[in-house]
Design a protein around this nucleic acid. Structure first.
Lengths: 296, 296
DNA sequence: CGGTCGATTGAGGTAACTCAAGTGCGGTGG
DNA sequence: CCACCGCACTTGAGTTACCTCAATCGACCG
């Protein structure tokens, strides 16, 4: 398993990171990295539980490393553990009956994945490392056992799963209702936010995925992604140079729903920073005819 | 609370049901319906836990009834319970900054909803009854407490949440990669399957939602949904009459990816039942540049 | 029986796709 | 070191799937 694909190990190339944090945070034991509960809570962005203060040998979780291109798990593979990203970048994909990939998410630091394996005891998706990765291995049994002992931690498990669900809902909403431009814009904003959370620059970062993968994630073709990035660049919202993205006007990206027609676009390049209200308010194709006054 | 909208209570109009099952299954107490653990497992389609055999007053869950159009919960409302559909049909929706609805799911018998509220302790979506509904109320505290006592039940909770996640992944995949026709086709198939599970006819059923709602769910306009249904009707895959749908060729619907161009469609009407291989195999716009040959 | 709402259908527009050519970069081998 | 190759990306031209707008029709309801 895990056809290792020996491709250039680029040693976590993160050129935009200010004070490059080395990965060496966890405990060292048997030459391997381990994390305790507190670190777990930290990386998951949930309040540390009271239990996390207890130093207990049993509360250590092993790390596992993967190199760029390696598969963490494949579809149908027997499920036994969840993963939390400690460092690095990945993608999770579904593969249809013709072998086409559909990107579902780009897990990065603090993200949990593998949850889809709980139900059928087999992973429903495939996870691939887009860079060298350091992952925290969470054996499911161990996790639930721990949850039973520490109520706060149990709630944290439910909470993180719920968070994943909400994220997917937002994704569905985006795919169902937004234009190509709006999708790309939101994608950039969410990446920017994530990088900020991780302590990197939110204004200048490198994409870890190809246009193709972005397109798959957003339900677009790679050409559309490329064109949209170029258009954003042209009107001064961002700068683009291959994988390097500079965010110039985060607010405009956040509220963007639809780009002005390319004919009218030229003059906008000059008068930047003259936007405040959302460009326009299309009724969109969402449901809206409701019978009830909707109070409460 | 709950502005009751006194509209014709159509007593669960399910004209296609063979041996119409009355809702009266749960326990009666204080004039209200209650379910025990076994019934809970049954309706959730998970194996009954050993605990479910214990008859315990504490293991009773109250039912709540809602009439067509009523809201079960709204976005931002304080979260305290999950719901399982015992009977009836609902929709869950997200509402964007302009008030447009995006349908996320159509919960029906056996479906769990409200999970999105766990993370922020506020519901992230809104649930609306599309018919009169009987729901099982699951106070979250009670649920987790129960999980702590009965390990199998705890696993069941995780499992059902995982199932929801997988469902949403499939949804994302569909929205990202499939044509309008394929989406509508799959929607019909999944409805058909659900009705079958519920003991209704899988060949003839009534839609509980409008074209608009279907469109929102599938990321299409109501006109496209309507046209697609008409097209399916024309080539003999289904019959359509307003809300009533008859499935004529379930296999074709399952494998349909793209409809033949309308020009070539005419002759197909005559020669039915001459389909076996998937119409065609477009590479689609999913990621595919993979190291693996991706055959099959 | 008129009003409202949902569904159907047509005509026309356009956003996003497809196909195709061309560029730049990184790796590899002569 | 440079030529070559493959891959990711960009950009253009043409096509089309789906959307938008609009008219019509039927069902349901007060």
């Amino acid at each position: 398993m895990l056809t290792t694909q020996l491709c250039a190990i680029r040693t976590e190339s993160t050129p935009t990171v200010p004070g490059a944090t080395p990965i060496e945070t966890g405990w060292q034991r048997q030459g391997k990295l381990w994390s305790n509960l507190k670190e777990l809570c930290d990386v998951l962005r949930i309040p540390p539980t009271s239990a996390s203060l207890i130093a207990d040998e049993e509360l250590l979780f092993q790390h596992v490393q993967f190199k760029t291109g390696q598969r963490i798990h494949t579809i149908g593979q027997s499920f036994d553990a969840l993963y939390i990203v400690h460092s690095g970048f990945l993608k999770t994909v579904l593969i249809d009956e013709y072998g086409n990939e559909q990107v579902l998410s780009f897990p990065m630091k603090g993200d949990l994945f593998g949850v889809d394996g709980i139900h059928t005891r087999r992973y429903a998706s495939e996870a691939v490392a887009l860079s060298n990765c350091d992952l925290i291995l969470l054996p499911f049994k161990k996790l639930t056992a721990l949850g039973r002992i520490h109520l706060e931690f149990e709630h944290a498990i439910y909470s993180v799963m719920s968070r994943e669900l909400v994220r997917e809902q937002a994704m569905i909403s985006m795919l169902g209702a937004l234009s190509a431009e709006a999708r790309v814009a939101r994608f950039l904003v969410s990446l920017s936010d994530r990088f900020a959370e991780m302590g990197y620059s939110s204004k200048l970062f490198n994409l870890r995925m190809t246009r193709h993968e972005i397109g798959s994630y957003l339900g677009l073709t790679l050409e559309t992604v490329s064109r949209t990035l170029s258009a954003f660049n042209e009107i001064g919202l961002i700068t683009v140079d291959q994988r390097s993205i500079g965010i110039k006007d985060a607010d405009a990206l956040k509220t963007l729903r639809r780009l002005p027609p390319s004919s009218a676009r030229a003059k906008q390049v000059a008068s930047r920073k003259a936007r405040q209200q959302p460009p326009d308010v299309p009724p969109s194709r969402g449901t809206c005819s409701e019978t009830i006054p909707a109070q409460m």
